Every structure is written in C-alpha cells, then in structure tokens.
Simulated assay, not measured.
Amino acid sequence: MMQIETIRDVLHWTKDFHQQLSQCLSHCADNNTDERARMILAYLSEHEKTLTDVVSGFEKNGDEHALNTWCYQYVHHNPITRHVHCDAPFVELDTAQIMDVIVDQHQQVIELYRYLASRAAISSTRELLESLCSLEEHEVMRLAQSSNRLGDL
C-alpha cells in the first residue's frame, strides 16, 4: 500500500490506478472469448491510458500549494486500498458486467475526490480536486455512452 499524505500522493495513486487498470484490461482483452467483450476491453484499456496521461499532467502542472496540501487525516481514517484489478475476471465477463466493474471503480475515485474537495480549506486545492472529480465524472459518462454504442453494433 502506497503511503498517501498529500494531494500530490492522491494524484500519483490515481495515475497508477488508471495505468494498472489499462494493463489489466489489455491483458484480459487478449483472452476473452466474446468478440464484443474483447472490443470493449481494448477500448477501455486505451481510455485508461489516456486518463493516466491526463492525471499525470495534473500532477506535473498543478498548483504547488494545492498539490502539497495534506490529506493524511482523511486517508488515515479511510484508507485507500489499491485495487487488484486483475482479480476481477474480465476474461469471463460480458460487456455489461465489464462496464459495471469499471464504473464502480471510477465511482470510488470520484467519491474520494468529492470528499477531499469538501474538506479542502485552500481554494486552489478545492478547485484542483473539483476539476479532477469533474474529469472522472465526464469520463465515466463518455465510457457509458461508448459502451452503449458498441452494444448497438
């Protein structure tokens, strides 16, 4: 488990979350027997790679005061557990089940950002967290729309 003390650490954790999810989805796409599931897994893997890069940009270019804000107390009481994504058998899931798992995992990240934003005393920290929350929310909506379009094929 990564030691999370500051908002920068939260961003680093989120970047790792998206990166590991991308790798897992890619691996599972190669082994799923359902063609639509393989397509959605490959699409989701690419999407997670993009999110990895976007969060990395926030981590590199964010306001230093916001990034260095302590959030240890929250994390101490509500530990962030690194998801072991490949324990979720994406290989055996259909497209709807895959989307349920992905949306649930993203919702957990969104809830973390929401909570930290609600507790932020510094406006730059709150704005950064609200931007990240908004990004994740929009990406989940986009994923759902893309998944629905794929289901219509």
Results as ranks from 00 to 15, higher is better:
E46A: 12
V101F: 08
N68R: 08
D53V: 06
Y113F: 15
E127C: 04
G62R: 01
T52P: 05
T33A: 10
Y115W: 09
N78P: 07
Y72W: 10
H47Q: 14
D34K: 11
F90L: 01
K49G: 07
L112W: 02
D100P: 06
V91M: 11
V91K: 14
R114T: 08
T125M: 00
G62M: 00
E48D: 06
Y113G: 01
H77L: 12
Y72K: 14
R36T: 11
S118Q: 12
V75M: 07
C71R: 00
I40W: 10
N78D: 10
T52S: 12
N78C: 09
Q108I: 06
I122Q: 12
T125E: 06
H65P: 07
D63Y: 03
Y43L: 11
D34I: 06
R36N: 09
K60T: 09
L93K: 10
H47F: 12
L51I: 04
L116T: 05
Y115T: 15
F58V: 03
T69V: 02
V55C: 04
H76S: 14
Y43V: 09
V91A: 10
I98E: 06
R82I: 09
V101M: 02
R82F: 04
L67A: 03
E111T: 11
T69K: 04
L67G: 02
Q107W: 01
T69P: 01
M99V: 14
A37F: 05
A96M: 10
N61T: 11
D87R: 15
A120V: 03
M99K: 13
V54M: 03
T50I: 11
C71Q: 02
E48C: 05
Y72C: 03
V101K: 11
D87G: 14
D63R: 00
E35F: 04
L116W: 07
T50S: 08
V109W: 04
L112M: 07
T81L: 04
C71Y: 03
D53M: 08
H47M: 10
L41P: 05
G62L: 04
Y72N: 11
C86N: 08
H47R: 13
I98W: 06
T95C: 10
A88Y: 10
D104C: 12
T50Y: 11
D34E: 11
L67N: 02
